[in-house]
Structure formats: C-alpha cells, structure tokens
Write a protein that binds this DNA or RNA. Structure first.
Length: 580
RNA sequence: GUCCGCGUAGCUCAGUAGGAUAGAGCAAUGCCCUUCUAAGGCAUCGGUCAGUGGUUCGAAUCCACUCGCGGAUACCA
C-alpha cells in the first residue's frame, strides 16, 4: 500500500476513535515551512457539531501525537500541520524500489474503446491532427496503467464524398485505366500510377474543381454512390490508394508513438448502416422532419436548443452523424465495451451530445455503457493563429516535425556520431512537440513556439529527456564501479527529502488525471520531480561519497526516480533515446 | 438572439471537489563549473486572479450582474 493511503486510513481510525466521523484526505501543504501535509477536517467537524474548530483540531492533534507517524504535529488556527517521520519515508522508498506499482492508481478493470486520430485517406496528416494523436495515445496509456483493457481505433475518414472526388480526378488523369470501364471483366492493376505526395495533392485540386464545375461534382457524387453500392472498379481503385495513404499516415503516427489496435474507419461503419436503419425504423424510433429522417434528441431540461439528430438528409443521403451512430452500433455488438471514449476538437461537442443521446434513446447502447466525448482546444502558432505554411496553406505534421527538428538540431553536441545526429534531433523535436502539447489544459487553446519549447532549459520535452538520460548515464557509471541500487538506509539531505515528498504525490496525481481524463498535471509533475532530482544531483556527488550507506542510498534513490521518469514518459508516449 | 467556454506576472500557461502568504516556464538581473553529461543548479525582480455585489469562519475557485474575447447553434465533417 502507498504510504499516503496508509496514513489516511490510520488517521481516519484515530478520528473515529474520538467519536468524529470523517474520511481523512491529506492535502499537500501549501506552507512547507509548517509541514508536509495538512488536515483541514476540523473546520467541517466544528460546523457539524457546532463547536470551536481550534478545540477540535487540538483534540485530534493530541491523539495523533500518540502515534509515531509524524515527527511534528502542529495546530495553527484550526489547520493541523503534519510532518512525516523520516523512518516512514525511508521505508516508502524501499517499498517503491521493490514494487514500483504501489505508486500507480488502480481502478476496477473495464473494457474501454478509445477513438482518436481521425486521419483522412488521401489527405496528409496536418497540425489539426496533432492533439488527438498525442492526447488520445497518452490517455490510452494512462487508463491502461490504471488497469483498464484499452482498445484504440484510429477511425479513418475513408468513405465519404472526398473518395468520389479523388476517383473522379484520377479518371481525369488516367481515363484509360480499367477501373472506370464498367464492362471490364479482368484483373485490375495492382500498381498505382500515383505516389503519396501526388495523391495528397489530388483532393484539394478536385475539391476546387467541384466548386466551379457542376458536372464534375455530379460525377463525383455518382462515383461515391456507385462505390458505396459495390462498384468493382471503383472499389479496386479505392483499395489501392487506401493502402498507399494509410501506410503513409501510419508512418507519421509511428513517429508520434501513436499506436492503434484497430485501423477501422467510416467504410467499416458504412456496412452496418442499412442494418441499423432497419432496426430504428422497425421500432419506430425515427421521425420525418422537414423531409429528413431524424431522431428527436431534445430533453426537457435543456437550456439550449438541441437540434434533432439527422440520419438521412431530405435527398435520402446519409452523413457523418449516420456513420457515427453506426460506428457505435457495431462497436457495441462486436466488443460489448464498458465505455467508449471519443477525442475530437472541442467544437464538435454538440454533435456528440446529439449522437450519444440518440444512441441511448434508441437502445443502441444500454444505459450502463458509458459514452464520453473529450474535447480539446487548438494548437496555434506564435502569432496566436493556426500554424500555416509559408504560402498560407495548412502545415502538415511532417512539416511541423521538420520545423522543430531544425531547432533541436542546434542542441546536438559533437560527441554524438554523425550518422545518429539527425534521428536524435527528430526524437528531441517530437519530445518537444508532445510535451508542449500535453502541458496545457486539454480543453484550452495554446500557442506553440518552436524555439521556446525546443530549449533544453525550462519546462520542455528535451529537458526531461536530457535529465533522464543523465540519470541513466549515472547509473551505468555506478554499475561500472560495481555499485548497484540495493537499499535506502539514510535520509541525510534536504534535497532527498524533497524528492521523496514528490514521489509520494505521484499516486494522487495519477488518480486525479484518470478521473478527469487530463494529462497536464502528469506533465507538470514530471517536470517537478525531474527538477527536484537535478537540484539533488547538482548539490551532491554520488560517486565521490565516502560513506557507503549514504552512497548506496543515493544510488537507490536515483534508480527509483529514473524508473519513475521512464514510467511517466511512457504514459505520455515519449521516447527516451540511448544518449543525448 | 440563445447556449457553452474563457479573461490569472511583460510573454506562454497551471491552479476552480472553497483553505493559511495565488504558482510554474520564458524574458530580465545576479551567483555557482580543474563537470558522476553546466545541454545543469540556486537566487532576485515581477499580481487589484477582467469589474461590481453576494454566500462563507475563509473565495482566483460557488452565486448574480456588467464588460471583453472565442466557439456552437438540423440536412458540412
């Protein structure tokens, strides 16, 4: 058991023994000069029992002093300040050394589908896809660390009208290809004449043409419908560029450490639309409104106007919302999950309110299945506006990584092998991007300044990686001298005590992060712990320490911090290089 | 119009299940290297928590109103 849990239990017992009832929650003191932790329950107890809070605090403090958990117990105007006894801290570090898991927060395991990524086929990943990948991946790992079985799905945009437009444009370029010949009966070509970057240029071009040329758009519409109805040639062509594009998308996600269990998308959900519509219609769950087939999702206590959920447009076509509901429909059937979590831009909030209401109202999912939408804010460039390329276009993720890599490349020292420099610079760049992305509150917009976040000083990804690598380097120096982490015996310095108190916070940070589905506190905590260790590192030279007990203690503490950093960096999906 | 979110140090951001003296990073200024990776550490400076009123022993945090900014608001995704 974690030390704080243990102390909270003990204090709850003590308070119960005095005839009071409260579940003790220790709060990290904001007055470190007075104590490590504080207990403020006396105020509430006083109110309940109509007594003086100072009196109650004094009675409780007197009782706590009878035990030896705390080296100091003080009451200051109703607050009980507690300083944890060093013996307990020493034992805690030894427990943590043996069982790092005591610092992890655990929940009753559930099966959770997490939907993030949202890449589109034949469209390059751009800066708008960054937060979904970073936050989604980290959240998946965080929830997994709490004991849940996570299934991640990239949910590709691979089926709608953009596909028809792309096929139409390919037809323009290569009309002779057999995909467009309805009477063709042979083997379709396996080689695609177009490479990825050309493919990524197709859609914007086709999209512009469609706005100007009604015939072109109409053909694209027809192609889309035909493809969705099983046109062999179009499907064969779609599969070709689907493979090329998804492979490219996967490469970028790999760079960001975003790994998906499922590479499903709208095309997979599409197959279930007819079945779902049949179910809804048979059970009279839909109605016609202004010519469209909708599900009314208003609620009596709504403060705002919640528009109906549209399944079919007045022209009979289906749309994004339909696919979304169909996705829930088949995920429920296929996986029977306890929860489905969606990560998207915060502006889609209303869409998900509607979708979830529709899913519950129609019993597509039972009330016991949790549907959760987590919105995130926008990453902006230094100007406060979305990142753009020089000519004003949307900046691709590859472009962003490249941009930041030019900054981190400057950091690399000459003792790194020439052939390793570029990949190290990229590792640092991705750490810079990921950390900067996870540090602000999930739902707020933030400004990313490439130079500032690539610095090795300050609250940055490179700083964390550098410090962690330095811990590793120290531990291997120790190993060379036949010194291994073993036992923590002496707590001899202020800096060590700071580190230990910080380690003690980890579990509650993880608990809060799991409960609120946020990562910024973990990111901030990782900096604090690292910074605290660096202060210790600067002040004390471990290898030159003569006292064997102290030296062993320091090595053990270093190992504990190093392992903690690795675990937290892993949750944030940041890669630690061998050497910097 | 209605609803939602936001307004905290020069800049970028934390902190809102009410707790004592509101925190970080950057920038600025100063100090510490014959280095277990100084690519580091320490310190100083910097605030009417948008404003007004209320609830409370106690408010950046809860409530009401005002001002400012952003977003959403049925056949886009």
């Amino acid at each position: 058991m974690n030390l704080i849990d243990y102390l909270e239990n003990k204090l709850t017992e003590i308070i119960k023994g005095l005839g009071y009832s409260d579940v003790v929650r220790l709060i990290i003191s904001n007055r470190p000069d007075l104590g490590d932790y504080q207990y403020n329950g006396a105020f509430n107890l006083a109110k309940e029992m109509k007594k003086n809070p100072f009196e109650i605090a004094n009675i409780i403090a007197k009782e706590i002093k009878k035990h030896d958990f705390f080296s100091k117990v003080d009451v200051v105007s109703g607050f009980i300040n507690l300083t944890i006894d060093n013996k307990l801290l020493i034992k805690y570090i030894n427990d943590l050394f043996k069982k790092p898991n005591i610092n992890l927060y655990q929940e009753k395991p559930k099966k959770i589908i997490i939907d993030y990524g949202g890449a589109n086929i034949a469209k390059e990943l751009h800066v708008g896809h960054l937060r979904s990948a970073n936050i989604g991946e980290a959240l998946k790992r965080l929830l997994a660390s709490a004991g849940h079985a996570m299934i991640s799905d990239v949910h590709l945009g691979d089926w709608g009208r953009p596909m028809g437009l792309i096929i139409r444009e390919i037809k323009e370029m290569y009309p002779e290809l057999p995909f467009f010949d309805n009477s063709f009966d042979g083997e379709y070509p396996k080689n695609f004449p177009i490479n990825v970057s050309e493919l990524n240029n197709l859609y914007p071009r086709a999209s512009i043409k469609a706005t100007k040329d009604e015939m072109y758009l109409e053909e694209a519409r027809e192609i889309t419908t035909a493809m969705q109805n099983g046109h062999k040639g179009y499907l064969a062509l779609w599969k070709l560029f689907y493979d090329i594009s998804s492979e490219d998308v996967k490469k970028v996600y790999d760079k960001l450490n975003a790994n998906f269990d499922l590479w499903e998308g709208e095309s997979d959900a599409d197959k279930h639309i007819p079945e779902m519509l049949e179910y809804l219609e048979k059970n009279n769950l839909t109605e016609i409104s202004d010519g469209a087939e909708v599900i009314n999702v208003k609620a009596e206590d709504d403060k705002r106007e919640v528009p109906p959920f549209i399944l079919k447009k007045s022209d009979g076509g289906v749309l994004y919302a339909t696919t979304e509901l169909a996705t829930i429909y088949y995920r429920q059937k296929k996986f029977v999950p306890d929860a489905m979590i969606y990560l998207t831009d915060i502006r889609q909030e209303l869409h998900f309110v509607q979708t979830f209401r529709a899913a519950y109202k129609t019993n597509i999912v039972p009330k016991t299945t949790v549907l959760e939408h987590l919105g995130f804010g926008t990453m902006n460039g230094p100007s406060g506006k979305p990142f753009k390329t020089r000519d004003g276009g949307v900046l691709s993720l590859k472009g962003l990584i490249k941009l930041v890599t030019t900054e981190t490349r400057k950091l690399i020292k000459d003792n790194i092998k020439e052939e390793d420099k570029d990949s190290l610079a990229e590792t640092l760049a991705i750490a810079a991007i990921k950390y900067a992305d996870l540090l602000p509150n999930r739902s707020s917009d933030y400004i990313f300044n490439p130079a500032e976040f690539s610095d090795l000083n300050g609250k940055t990804g490179p700083y964390l990686l550098y410090s962690t690598v330095r811990m590793k380097s120290l531990l291997s120096k120790c190993a060379e001298a036949n010194l291994y982490p073993s036992i923590y015996l002496n707590l001899s310095t202020k800096e060590e005590r700071d580190i230990i108190l910080n380690l003690l916070k980890m579990k509650s940070i993880l608990e809060k992060s799991v409960c609120t589905r946020t990562l910024n506190e973990i990111a901030d905590y990782l900096y604090k712990l690292t910074n605290c260790f660096n202060a210790f590192y600067s002040e004390h030279e471990i290898l030159k320490q003569k006292d064997e007990n102290i030296r062993n203690s320091w090595i053990t503490l270093t190992k504990v911090v190093y392992d903690t950093n690795l675990k937290l960096l892993d949750i944030l999906a940041m890669t630690v290089p061998e050497k910097i």
